[in-house]
């Protein structure tokens, strides 16, 4: 197990190296620059600024400097928010996204697993059709449409929920619904098909023949098996949702990481873009290792290595 974790971490480091290198060079392909905003600075100022941030150096030198700092965990300083460390920005923004995202994941998993199981148990009946229809919608309808519809009805028409900011529990409701809709639908579909598969397995018949009650068979024997694929999906889901959705944060004006990432791109804030990208990559890799380990705990057949 320990050996496996070390191995995965090593592979993760290589992945991170590749991600940071690719991002670094992509930066140079993007037209425009950080200081070409509304009012263009004079040639002298521009030169001074570029000198200050090391942008005048040859690309390989810049790359070397960047990677060296990265090794120390230093993601550099923002170009736009003068003097602020990228690390500092990420760690003030992340908790905001993580809170909304955390709730969304909880809702998505609990509802997704429940709805999927209910649909499977009532296969072909009305309730199954309703759940399948809803979850198909949830997968097909893009996030921004969900946000807009929610805002229009709950915010504007009925005026029962605030449409921007994040200052009370009420503010969480719409973003959480918007964020959890897709993963909930995905999980419920996944859960439904896995549950149907599991319910037809021989060991379910064995459980019945042993005199296990229907509910005990469901919760003990079926759920544990049917939930395995959901656990796999949880890795990427955690990473993406906890770090904030760009769309949802933009629409509901939530000061999270996703919102900050968009601004960094439109503002050509190179260090912030790279910092956020690398941080996200790091998170995805870590979450996947965590999920692998959880998976091993749930399914004894899995051999890590």
């Amino acid at each position: 197990m320990a050996k496996y974790i070390v191995k995965r971490m090593a592979i993760g480091m290589v992945t991170l190296l590749i991600v940071s290198t690719v991002t670094f060079f992509l930066m140079f392909l993007v037209p425009g620059g950080p200081f070409l905003a509304e009012k263009a600075p004079s040639a002298a100022t521009l030169k001074a600024l570029e000198e200050k941030y090391g942008l005048d150096k040859p690309v390989p030198v810049q790359y070397k400097n960047y990677m060296l700092r990265l090794l120390k965990g230093d993601l550099g300083t923002s170009l736009k928010q003068r003097g602020r460390e990228v690390n500092d920005i990420i760690f003030t923004r992340l908790p905001v996204s993580a809170r909304v995202g955390g709730w969304a994941i909880l809702v998505a998993v609990v509802l997704g697993v429940t709805l999927g199981s209910v649909a499977a148990l009532n296969r072909g009946k009305a309730i199954d059709n309703v759940i399948v229809f809803l979850s198909t919608c949830g997968i097909a309808v893009p996030g921004f449409v969900v946000c807009t519809v929610l805002m229009y009805f709950l915010g504007a028409k009925l005026n029962i929920l605030p449409t921007f900011g994040l200052t009370s529990y009420k503010h969480y409701i719409m973003p959480v619904i918007a964020l959890s809709f897709y993963p909930m639908s995905y999980i419920s579909r996944l859960m439904r098909s896995c549950m149907l598969d599991v319910l037809g397995q021989d060991y379910m018949r064995t459980a019945k023949a042993k005199g296990v009650s229907q509910w005990a068979a469901l919760f003990k024997h079926a759920l544990r098996n049917a939930i395995l694929p959901v656990v796999t999906y949880l890795g990427p889901l955690l990473a993406y949702t906890l770090t904030g959705s760009f769309i949802v944060e933009k629409i509901f004006t939530i000061p999270g990481l996703g919102d900050s990432f968009i601004s960094s791109i439109t503002g050509r804030d190179y260090p912030l873009i790279m910092g956020t990208t690398i941080f996200l990559a790091f998170l995805v890799i870590t979450m996947n290792v965590v999920v692998d380990i959880v998976y091993k705990l749930v399914d004894p057949r899995i051999k890590l290595g």
Binding site: R205, K210, V212
Partner: peptide
């Protein structure tokens, strides 16, 4: 009823199936 039958199954009457590879639940000891 189902409930009454449960008392008997696995207790007074039990069964072994054809395929032992799939008749045991893979995730429990």
């Amino acid at each position: 009823s189902e409930k009454e039958l449960r008392q008997i199954r696995g207790n007074e009457i039990s069964i072994i199936f054809q395929d032992p590879m799939t008749s045991l639940n893979p995730v429990f000891t």
